[in-house]
Amino acid sequence: MSTQQTVRRWILTGSITAIAATGAIYGAGLRSRQQYEEKRKKAVEATPEDMIAQLEVVRSELVGKKLEMERKLAQITARRLQKEEAAKDTK
């Protein structure tokens, strides 16, 4: 009798876990679809001034990233040149 209760308990535990996981996944999917629809609706309803403002914000972020990448590239190039000069001096 005890073995049967243990098996039943495991089955119930597994079933409840599966139901909870399925509900969480389904809820997350609904939420992400809802967010997508809200973003799409905002984009469609946006005035030209709003679109321009958004594009300017994105542009400024991209320019900032570009400057950061150029700075890092310059640092890497300078280190490479220093290593090459150090290698020439040791020869």
Rank of each mutant, 00 (worst) to 15 (best):
P48A: 06
I52H: 02
E49W: 07
L62Y: 10
T47G: 10
T47N: 05
K72S: 05
A78H: 02
E61M: 05
Q35C: 00
V63N: 03
E49P: 03
A87M: 06
Q34E: 10
R8M: 13
T17C: 12
R31T: 08
R40Q: 13
G14N: 15
S60Q: 10
Q82S: 07
M69V: 04
P48N: 13
L81Q: 14
I19E: 07
K88S: 10
I16R: 15
Q54G: 07
E85V: 11
T3E: 09
G23M: 12
R9P: 02
L81S: 08
A86L: 12
V7F: 07
A87T: 06
P48S: 09
E85Q: 09
V58A: 14
I76W: 00
R33C: 01
L81P: 02
E68N: 13
A53S: 14
M1K: 03
T47Y: 00
T6N: 07
L12M: 14
R9T: 12
R79I: 01
D89T: 07
G29A: 04
A53E: 12
A74D: 12
T3Q: 01
K41T: 14
I76R: 09
I16V: 14
R71D: 09
Y36L: 04
A43K: 05
Q34G: 06
K65V: 02
R33F: 04
E85M: 13
S60D: 09
A21I: 15
W10K: 11
V44D: 03
A24D: 05
I11W: 08
Q82G: 04
A21C: 12
L62S: 05
A20I: 14
L12H: 11
E45R: 14
T17N: 10
T13H: 04
S15L: 14
D50L: 09
L55H: 15
R71E: 10
L67Y: 03
K91R: 12
T6I: 13
I11F: 09
R8V: 09
L30K: 00
G64L: 00
A20V: 15
Q35T: 00
I25H: 03
R80V: 01
Q4L: 14
R8P: 02
Q35S: 00
Q54V: 08
K72T: 06
K41C: 07
A43P: 01
M1P: 00
A86F: 09
V63W: 00
S32G: 00
A28P: 01
K88D: 08
M69Q: 07
V7I: 13
R9E: 11
E84C: 03
E49H: 10
L55W: 14
I11S: 09
D50T: 12
V7L: 11
A20Q: 08
T77F: 03
Q75P: 05
E37N: 09
S2W: 03
V58D: 15
E85A: 12
R40A: 12
G14F: 11
Q35V: 00
S2C: 03
I52D: 04
R71G: 06
T17Q: 10
K88R: 13
P48R: 08
A24K: 05
T90L: 15
L62F: 07
G64Y: 00
S15T: 14
T77N: 06
E84P: 01
